[in-house]
Design a protein around this nucleic acid. Structure first.
Lengths: 155, 155
DNA sequence: TAAATATTGTTCTATTTGGAACAATATGCC
DNA sequence: GGCATATTGTTCCAAATAGAACAATATTTA
């Protein structure tokens, strides 16, 4: 029996920033259990998975690109790159003209892993978003899309 | 000048889980800069702020309550409690009937800090959500509310 | 061309984080 | 009551995280 039988979910609606609270709650609800599973079953941490995810959608990226896209610091990416290269999930080839940077790409093996792992996110996404009917879900997608564009334009 | 002039925002729409990606992106866009500012200006980390936030909306909570509400492990809360008590933002009084637990509550000083800090979230929330007009924003709120209820019911 | 400034990716370091084990207390079961 | 099981909150420890400084290379400016 838990400590208190009081309704702690009251905070959902009775706080000063309900939309922020809800968005954050939903993000965590979808993502956290999936990352936990990936960590447990495959041994990849969040930064490593994000690296794989980014590279699954572009032919080539630099570490800096991934840092920009994922919002993680470059040193985290750097460590992830070395571990993922060692495990055969990504390739790394130094730029021929710019000695500082290197181009990263996903390997066949990495692609296969991505396909397997992204399904976990998709399944969990469906579980959560099934709280809406089809029309509502379309509506939500459009609103989110609009917001993301707006947000990346204001920085 | 950044590394690549390619359009890295293409990933917003061309991935397998666009809604998850968007929700996560929006959550981070709102929350991360505010937490960074709070850390910089007030010295509170995320767990400590969440503790303050939870206590601002309930008269009394146990550490376990806060762990349940915030999704953070109990040891993080425990550490936060001691720091926040030492700084005078929260009070802690052991339960008279159950020697294991203690009741936490926000102090006047803590309340004042909460009022000040939650404004930062509100301002950032508005910046981001101003990408929608009033009707759309209402629509979004309703959809999010519905999803949060659904999600907390499925666990 | 030379010097000042940028950028990339890395290492170093301190902080944050969370799992696991733990002591203290409470509850359930016989 | 007495023994097994829960729960609470804490400490311990290993991993993740991110800021800062750094070396190597490019670019810009004079």
């Amino acid at each position: 029996m838990p400590a208190s039988a009081r309704d702690l979910t009251a905070i959902f609606d009775r706080n000063e920033i309900p939309d922020t609270y809800r968005i954050s709650f939903l993000a965590n609800s979808i993502i956290v259990p999936v990352y936990d599973g990936i960590k447990r079953d495959v041994g990849l941490n969040r930064g490593e998975y994000l690296l794989l995810f980014c590279l699954a959608h572009f032919a080539e990226l630099t570490a800096q690109d991934v840092a920009n896209m994922s919002g993680r610091p470059r040193n985290s990416i750097s460590r992830g790159v070395h571990r993922m290269v060692a495990q055969g999930y990504i390739d790394r080839s130094p730029d021929k003209h710019d000695g500082r940077q290197a181009w990263l790409s996903i390997t066949e093996q990495g692609r296969a892993l991505h396909v397997r792992l992204v399904k976990r996110f998709k399944d969990r996404e469906d579980e959560v978003l099934n709280g809406l009917n089809a029309a509502q879900r379309t509506q939500l997608s459009k609103l989110l899309q609009k917001l993301v564009l707006h947000t990346s334009s204001i920085g």
